[in-house]
Structure formats: C-alpha cells, structure tokens
Design a protein around this nucleic acid. Structure first.
Lengths: 232, 232
DNA sequence: CGCGGCTTTGATGTTCATCAAGTAAAGTGG
DNA sequence: CCACTTTACTTGATGAACATCAAAGCCGCG
C-alpha cells in the first residue's frame, strides 16, 4: 500500500493526454497538473482497494496491474489486466462512490491520480473532453466484457491458450515473454483451478506448442495455440 | 425486423427523461423530439443486429429485450437482459461504429431511436447531459459485468437459481411470473446446456423450491433459492 | 396429418475439481 | 548463515459435475 508520490510531471506531456486530454486548453491542463498526483507502485502494491471510497480518477502510466474482486463467497477473481494508458477506476468511477474492484500492481508501475471532482467539472464544462472520455471509457470497458464473454465459452485448454495469446499479442507484443502473474492468478483470471493451469501448461510444453520455465514463456507454434484458443 | 414507427411522443414526457435527459432545455428537448423515432417491436423482432452499422442511440421504453452475441465459433450467447429505460446500444455506441451485440425483443416492446449525431452534439454542448449520460452508461454496463462475474463463479445449480432470482427481483418484482425466455435461452444466458437447465429446474420443483409449468414460475422457498444462488 | 421446434428424462463418457503428496523456491527469525 | 516456515509449483489418483447422445412426448403450424 506504500505508494510514493513522484516528482510532478505536467499533464501537457503525459501519454494519456494524446488520448483523452487532448481537447483541454493549456489553462485547463495546468489546473489538472495542480490537482493530480503521480505515484509509484511496486510490484504487489495495492493501488486501490475494493469497497474503499473513490478518491480520484486513476489511470496507469507505466507498468501493469490487475483488477481483482472478492465475491460474496470469499473467492478471489481477476476481472482483467490493465496496461499503460488504461484508466483503472473503470465504470465504478461514474456509477458508484466506492471501487468495485481492487487494483494491484503486477509490475513496478506509475499511475496518475486526478482529483475526481475536477474531472467531473471538466466533463460538464468541456464537451469535447466529455466526448473523448466517453469514448475511452467505452472502449476499455467493452474490451473487458468481450474478453470475459469469449473465455466463458471455452474449455480449460482454450482458456489457457487464450490468456497466453492475450499476453503475447496485447501486452508484450512478442512471442516470448515473462508471465507477469502466478499460476494461481492465471486460474483466478480465467475461472479455473491452479492444478489444471499447471497441468495444461505442461501439456502444451509436452506437445511442443510452448516452452515454459518458471515464468518464461516462448510460443513455438502460434497457429496451433490460436486454433486451441478458438476451438478449445 | 419489422418495426413500426409509432405516433410521436414528445421527449419531454418520456420516462427516460427523468434519468438522463433531465438536464436539457425545452428547446433541446424539442430538437430531440424531431430527430428521434419511437418504434414498436413484436416479440422476437430484431431491434438491432450484431455487426450492422450503428444508426442511433437506442433505449428501451417498454417491454423486454435480450442482448445476444454470436461468437467466432458460431455459438450463441446471451449477454444480458434489457429492461425499460436501459439503453441497449450499450458501450458499443461510443467505442465502435457497429453493434457488438444483437438486440432482440423478448416481449412486445417500444423503443426509442435517437439520432446518434444529435446525442453526440448534445454531449459536447451540454456538460450536465454528458455527465448524466456517463453515469447512466456506467451503471448499466457495470451491472452487466457484475452479473457475469457472479455467474462465472457458480456451478449450474447456482446459475439457475441466480437467473430465477434475477427475473423475480430485478425484472418482475414478484415471486410468481412467466419466464420470458425459453430453456434454450436460459442456457445461452448462463453458459450451460439446455438439458441441464431442464434437469435442474425439475430438481428444484421436486425439492419444492419452485413450481414450474411451461413458462409459469412460482417461487415457494425464496430463502432456499437465495442460498443456492450464493453457495451453489 | 406430418413436420419441426421445444421440452423432458435416461444413459454414458468426458472434463474438471478435489484430495493427497512431494519438490522447489523464497522468506523469516535466531 | 543456517534451520525453519511458508508459499508456489507439480504430478497422480479419485469422484463429482457436466456435456453429449439418444429417444420420446408435446405443441403449433402449414
């Protein structure tokens, strides 16, 4: 939970600006700069906690984070993965006053926390800003839902293939990378059990589809993996 | 697909107004009235089709509709149920130019189709409108996601209980009602097979938890059903 | 009437969760 | 730094949950 405030960077040079804040005036950007804080989170740090009051509009600048949720039964579930420039407060921000998910850093990350009241003020004052926010929020949330719907129809083999492809294609854009999450977390992400994640990964390795050593994954047969993710 | 245009009603007396359009001026509401159409859909009619171009901002005035989706494999999936005052274009409206889901009437329904360009214009022009739209869109989408996440963690018995409770509590607000969807559609809604839906419904009946005859459901033991939905 | 779609039940095999047990890796405290 | 504990990973065996296949009844519709 220890998140350090970083030396301020002005919002006018922020990567997020090009996507959402592009429509704001220099003046408004300065206002934004004054009422935001950039923070650093170490791997494992809790950026926001499910159920706690929403303090600000949060988006990820660098790094990687998971959105998690504890259901009524006490079972942990990973709702999705946030990559740089995703806002992670998600829909809750505008429909509730408390976070519906926890946000936890998977890698050392930087995130920006903008005063929520200011964002709301800007929505009301600056129509174009409101519009681009709507677009961005829609895109991120829609993608989250699509991923989940896709996974729901797959059997376990297909789910594991899906998530490997996800990291390869959407996150790291490389055939070979280090899994940022544990076997347990993979299980929580695609609604299955640790043992079966392990078993299926071993199976993929045996079949020469991937190599995997610890967290290091290398995809040997992308076509085959894609086939499994689609038909498995 | 045959949807008849209804005799115009002015937007100033629309049920949706109180939720989202409340902030618009009389003038703007008249503008809205001119650039919208109220349509009637009969049970089974397709209100919008997955993949087709988004023509307008659609919301349901009366009746009931399902949001469905055909995945890459050709398997049908029901994403959610829309009740009156839900906008059914959902997130796609602002993040894509084609519908990601089909919208199909489950009961005779009336829906309103507002010129999307006008809505976007109003978002830009009227900050308060933008804000209430953001809130509404967030609430509906968030709920959709929550429901799906809940269902994902349940076994089949729990899912069936969940969906019965859903209709009883959220849609009809009565312990006894007519299921608006077939057994097959229930299966598509909670990711299971028709046979198992039937089997579990019969089981609930045998155990005296519900009565069910055709589409007519009556919940006899709400507490027991709730227990199953939470622990099943 | 006959056909097709929806519903229902039974039988069977597959997929998956659970239990158990063991290894490896990573903290923790003396 | 080493014994100790904990946590992550891995494999096997077993039973429960579920999909699939098969068959029959029901109903509406041309």
């Amino acid at each position: 939970m220890s998140s350090n405030v970083c030396p301020g960077t002005t919002c006018s040079v922020c990567g997020f600006r090009s996507e959402v804040f592009q429509t704001l005036s220099t003046d408004q950007l300065e206002q934004l700069t004054r009422r935001k804080s950039i923070r650093a989170a170490r791997k494992g740090d809790i950026i926001a906690k499910q159920g706690s009051q929403i303090m600000g509009f949060i988006f990820l600048r660098t790094g990687l984070a998971k959105l998690t949720r504890l259901n009524a039964e006490g079972r942990q579930q990973i709702v999705g993965i946030a990559t740089p420039n995703d806002f992670v407060g998600l829909l809750s921000v505008f429909s509730s006053d408390s976070y519906h998910f926890s946000i936890i850093a998977l890698e050392d990350s930087e995130y920006c926390c903008v005063d929520l009241e200011l964002v709301k003020e800007l929505v009301v004052k600056e129509g174009k800003f409101a519009m681009s926010l709507l677009e961005k929020i829609s895109r991120v949330s829609d993608l989250l839902l699509q991923n989940r719907l896709n996974i729901d129809l797959l059997q376990l083999r297909g789910r594991v293939a899906y998530i490997i492809c996800y990291f390869a294609n959407e996150v790291y854009r490389q055939r070979s990378f280090n899994l940022p999450i544990s076997r347990r977390e993979i299980a929580e992400l695609i609604d299955m059990r640790v043992e079966n994640v392990v078993r299926i990964l071993s199976e993929f390795r045996r079949d020469g589809i991937i190599t995997i050593e610890g967290t290091a994954i290398n995809i040997l047969k992308p076509e085959k993996l894609r086939w499994i993710k689609e038909h498995g």
